[in-house]
């Protein structure tokens, strides 16, 4: 039995050094030199300040911006009560509510009502009223973006075709026509809105 102790200990130490220290450090060095943008989290800067990551969604409430999907993330306030902290990227997670959850059905119904009040009657894109898996989904469906466009244009006092044109310009279509879903990165779209001068 103890005959196996030395090989066990030595192999654990050697593999810890190789796969846990030397390679990750070398790989990080390579990543920082060759792909610094991706390696540091695809951060976008404006006037020298980090304004977010292309990959990570943000919470938008102003009518001049497209709205992100609901986020189920929660935190605690100073008094220790649980509060909603949508798009708090220091954490991640889903609502984990079941299909038979009354809480889920109630919030979806409430979100549909709020969505229609803001963007008009008719069927509501399902992604706009359901929380994502990470709570940080950077995208909305193309259908949702097109549905929101007229209201965003109205809030900016712009012609609707300008906003719709931007949505189409920035839409990401499925890879090779069938892998993934048609979608728009909300932060990238809203940034483009701020830079657009119709």
């Amino acid at each position: 039995m103890f005959r196996e102790l030395r090989p066990a200990l030595t192999l654990v130490v050697l593999f810890t050094l190789l796969t846990g220290l030397v390679l990750p450090v070398l790989f990080t060095g390579f990543a920082q030199l060759a792909f610094p943008f991706q390696a540091n989290g695809s951060l976008i800067r404006q006037n020298g300040q980090i304004i977010g990551s292309v990959r990570i969604g943000q919470n938008f409430t102003a009518p001049v911006y497209f709205q992100s999907r609901p986020s189920a993330l929660t935190g605690t306030d100073a008094k220790g009560n649980s509060i909603a902290t949508p798009y708090d990227a220091s954490e991640s997670g889903a609502s984990n509510l079941a299909a038979t959850s009354k809480a889920l059905e109630d919030s979806v119904t409430a979100r549909i009502a709020a969505y229609r009040a803001q963007f008009g009657p008719g069927p509501v894109p399902i992604d706009a009223v359901t929380a994502s898996g990470s709570g940080l989904d950077p995208d909305i469906s193309l259908a949702d973006a097109l549905r929101q466009a007229p209201a965003v244009a109205a809030a900016r006092h712009w012609p609707v075709p300008v906003v719709i044109g931007l949505v189409h310009k920035l839409a990401q279509h499925p890879l090779l026509g069938f892998i993934g879903e048609a979608r728009v990165d909300v932060l990238v779209l809203n940034l483009a809105l701020d830079h657009e001068k119709p």
């Binding site: 299909a99 889920l104 929380a131 994502s132 879903e181």
Partner: peptide
Amino acid sequence: LQIAAGASPLHGNMEGKEMRFG
């Protein structure tokens, strides 16, 4: 139930799912 409440059936069940995957 969500579709009956007015949601579009296009993407199926999206609670807990990411838009880029569907």
